[in-house]
């Protein structure tokens, strides 16, 4: 059985989710080829254990993101079951490849078993769907839902230089201002809500985050109320879906739309002064306290760990 993996990149290298894609593919016992758009990360991909072949795609069209031209070049190499990350670009590229190879796509799966039985969450996390597929098909995998493959592999790297016409022209890049780690990438996320009172109080979340290497997120109420809190930090139904090992919600009531983006976190800690806040319903560990009292204590206690 052939499995084609679309490498997910981050800057000049591979994003760690690529190892998780290989891990999931290996658990199915597939023969794995990794496609590296723009050639980014091809050497790193070749040493992931379980990879048979890496195709480094070098065409000019890969200099900026255009799912149309990228998928045109990638479709002929997309054999068997195709796997990509369920990041925004992974979903877009996956859907275009699916359409070009005439296959269906199932997005954002959190589980896969031999026989192509896949699990995913639907209705904003209010139901779980299990479905069965046959190859050819495309699936995108939720980040951190699968065990990553280890290193130690030595796959051959094949360079292919194909390009095609680009239909989306990038005119201007607008960088995020001093942005911290992205919430979708982090193992630990600490988020603040309207209960933080003022945007400047997010500095206290940043301080705790720095101690444990966490990303800082926010509720929609915080993003909507305060210009200083960008939408890129928003967790929830109309923000990002996160799947960290630890999610700490501070001054967040736990509205259903917020839960939609974080309830699959492995462990949830809630800090809220209202003992009846719905967030306590999903929290593994709830602390009924104000953040003014709890955050300095949290920073101190975490700082004591080594």
């Amino acid at each position: 059985m052939e499995i084609t993996i679309i490498a997910e990149t981050s800057g000049e290298g591979l994003h760690p989710v690529t190892e998780q894609l290989v891990g999931a593919a290996s658990s199915l016992g597939g023969v794995i080829t990794v496609l590296c758009p723009g050639g980014v990360g091809s050497n790193d991909a070749s040493v992931i254990s379980g990879v048979s072949k890496v195709i480094s795609l070098q065409g000019d069209c890969f200099s900026s993101f255009d799912s149309g031209s990228w998928s045109t070049v990638m479709a002929p190499f997309s054999q068997g079951m195709v796997m990509a990350s369920s990041s925004p670009s992974g979903r877009e590229l996956g859907a275009q490849i699916a359409s070009k190879i005439g296959a269906p796509i199932v997005q954002d799966i959190t589980g896969i078993e031999p026989g192509y039985k896949v699990t995913r969450s639907v209705y904003s996390g209010k139901a779980v769907e299990t479905s069965s597929l046959t190859a050819p098909c495309v699936v995108t995998l939720r980040q951190n839902a699968f065990e990553g493959a280890s290193g130690g592999g030595s796959a051959e790297v094949v360079v292919v230089d194909n390009s095609t016409e680009v239909s989306v022209a990038v005119k201007e890049a607008i960088a995020k201002a001093g942005e911290r780690m992205d919430v979708s990438d982090a193992e630990i996320v600490i988020s603040g809500g309207r209960g933080m009172g003022e945007p400047s109080n997010f500095s206290q979340l940043n301080e705790v985050a720095d101690v444990i290497g966490a990303a800082v997120g926010a509720s929609r109420a915080a993003v909507d109320s305060w210009d200083e809190i960008p939408h890129s930090m928003q967790v929830g139904q109309t923000g990002k879906t996160v799947n960290p090992t630890l999610y700490i919600a501070v001054g967040i009531s736990g509205a259903i739309q917020h839960l939609a983006g974080m309830r699959s976190s492995k462990y949830i800690v809630a800090i809220n002064k209202d003992p009846d806040a719905p967030i306590f319903g999903v929290a593994d560990y709830g602390i009924v306290a104000t953040w003014e009292d709890a955050l300095p204590a949290l920073k101190e206690e975490l700082g004591k760990l080594s």
Partner: peptide
């Protein structure tokens, strides 16, 4: 569906920029 498949899939079928 929480998918995000429809737009890019349609663009591909229409030969439209996505």
């Amino acid at each position: 569906t929480n998918s995000g498949s429809t737009g890019p899939g349609i663009a591909s079928l229409m030969g439209a920029a996505c």
